[in-house]
Design a binder for these strands. Structure first.
Length: 126
RNA sequence: UGACCAAGCGGGGCUGUCGCGCUAUAUGUUGGUGAAAGCUAUUAUAGCGAGGAAAGUCCGGGCAUCACAGGGCAGGAUAACGGAUAACGUCCGCCGGAGGCGACUCCCGGGAAAGUGCAACAGAAAUAAACCGCCCGAGGUGUUUUUGACGAGUGCAGAAAUCGUUUUCUUCACACCGCCAGGCAUAGUUACCUAUGUCAAGGUGGGAAAAGCGAUUAACACGAACGAUAGUUUGUGUGUUCUGUGCCGUCAAAAGCAUCUCGGGCAAGGAUGGAAAGGCGAGGUAAGAGCUCACCCACUCCUAUGGCAACAUAGGUUUGCUGUAAACCCUAUCCGAUGCAACACCUUUGGUUUCGAUUUUUUCGAGGGGCUGCCCGCCCCGAUACCGAUGGUGGCAGAGCAUUUGCUUGAACUGCGGAGUGAUUCGCAGUGAAGAUAGAUGACAGCUGCACGUAAGUGUACAGAACCCGGCUUACAAGCUCGGUCAUUUA
RNA sequence: CGGGGUGUGGCGCAGCUGGAAGCGCGCGACGUUUGGGACGUCGAUGCCGCAGGUUCGAAUCCUGUCACUCCGA
């Protein structure tokens, strides 16, 4: 499962200010409907509607090594979760790491994400 | 065995499941998206996929662009010598200096004898003096000695003179006093008392003669004290014998000493300081001084020997110089500027392309632009020109040839061998695709290694490519190795 | 990727042209007040970010380093 990343800074600030929010001790998740989703879906070869994902890890957490490890763990946890329970599509999802995330494993991150998405009601109806 | 010195190694391993990026091949779509350039798919296989520091960005180089890659000033960097290197501020060797018993380590190591600046406090004085000091000369003051003169200062001796006094002899009973002291008498008065007279003792002074003793300048004038206002004593002023000699005083001269002032010489000594202008001894001098000499120290230059050279050693010679250039500065050498967000190309798109003289071209002048701070020089100004903006591709994963996974070859790495003390270099063989663009190189599980701990268990560092290399600097868990030094003990 | 600045009492800042470090606020004590505030007097508090070096002497000069911060592309 590949992710499409959020590149623009204004989308991040929009997600922080207008998006719905769910926070655990390790992470903070912001979700906002993506208005450009349909337009992007056209560009997609299989015409699929995708979620755009943004990961933010600040310099407070540590050096470059620590930050890149946290980013990988977040991505791994998200990937594992997506396999089990598919998410609704057409959203901007920003995941911010907090300081306790540096010591966790990817499985723990998966659990945190599960709680957060459940709060936000992001799961598709089965 | 202990304490050290130096050079290095090292950066855990294996298995399974899931996943990511790139490359190649096969498969597959002929579509989607966008203004365009361009970008973009599913699955499978194979290969590759983070360090010793990838970090800090402190140096150097490659590469790229900028008139032709230029000149000068400014600015910056470096600093013994020789070498290595593409280059360096790096490395190696060596010299000099400093430290260590030693192995060895450390040194931004040119010039202070081109000039300027600075050196607090202390100290006489801070880069050149002269405060004290030493010496010479002149003058003043004080003092001592000697000589001379003067003295109406003074001692002694002598002479003359004078005075006083004593004694004696007298003398004139000479003069005066005889009062406010005494007696008597008279008068007044009761008396005391007053007045007058008188009395002698007495006092004072004087004269003449002799002797002794003593004193001394006479004498005069004025004043003071005492007294019975006769006088005595004394002070002051004027004035005052002689001779000899001593002392004293004054003056003069000379000399010595002390002190002060002025002029000159000197830099030996002076408690300070980080630093005081070679050290020490002798000579020398008015006093002194490398002023001279011997020895020593440092330094300039020359010669000889050794070394490629810095330099070392020996001899001669010159000189005797504060420190600071990580103060300005001087000397030598080097440096054009900007950095892959450079730069090239493509798409879309915006802006600029000047003025005057002359006869059109041309030329000249001004102005503008282009290579940076300034100046010069150069180029362009109606042309597929210049300056931007948007998006994209390349740059970017070594190069070339072929066109199908092939061949040749470079940097780099590994091994072996040669050269060199070494940095390094030469030859041979082998290896010789990380390469993204919000950023891949991972996650989970199991076994195990190492260290600590009886065990359970705990710990397993620093840290993440962003155009590429060479260095430097900084961070770093546990552990390991080669070589060397010193000390102790044993044989 | 490139360039600059700052670090000094508890806090905010001077002093950077070498010669033993100060200001304001704050803190403590005392006075004043019934008490507090204000006011007055007195006092304490610095390895000048760290480590080396130059110098007789370094907060100041040089080198390295750490942290913070700003600017340009």
């Amino acid at each position: 499962m590949k992710f499409r990343a959020i590149c623009e800074n204004h989308l991040y600030s929009k997600a922080y200010s207008k998006g719905k929010r769910a926070v655990t001790c390790a992470i903070a998740v912001y979700v906002l409907p993506d208005y450009a989703a349909k337009r992007l879906a056209k560009a997609h070869p299989e015409k699929r509607v995708m979620n755009r994902i943004g990961l933010t890890v600040s310099t407070k957490l540590g050096g470059a090594t620590v930050r890149s490890r946290v980013r990988r763990i977040l991505r791994e946890g998200l990937r594992a979760l997506e396999k089990e329970k598919p998410l609704k599509t057409g959203f901007l999802i920003v995941i911010a790491a907090r300081s306790s995330a540096t010591k966790l494993k990817s499985t723990d991150i998966r659990d945190h994400l599960d709680i957060a998405f459940e709060k936000l009601g992001m799961y598709k109806d089965v």
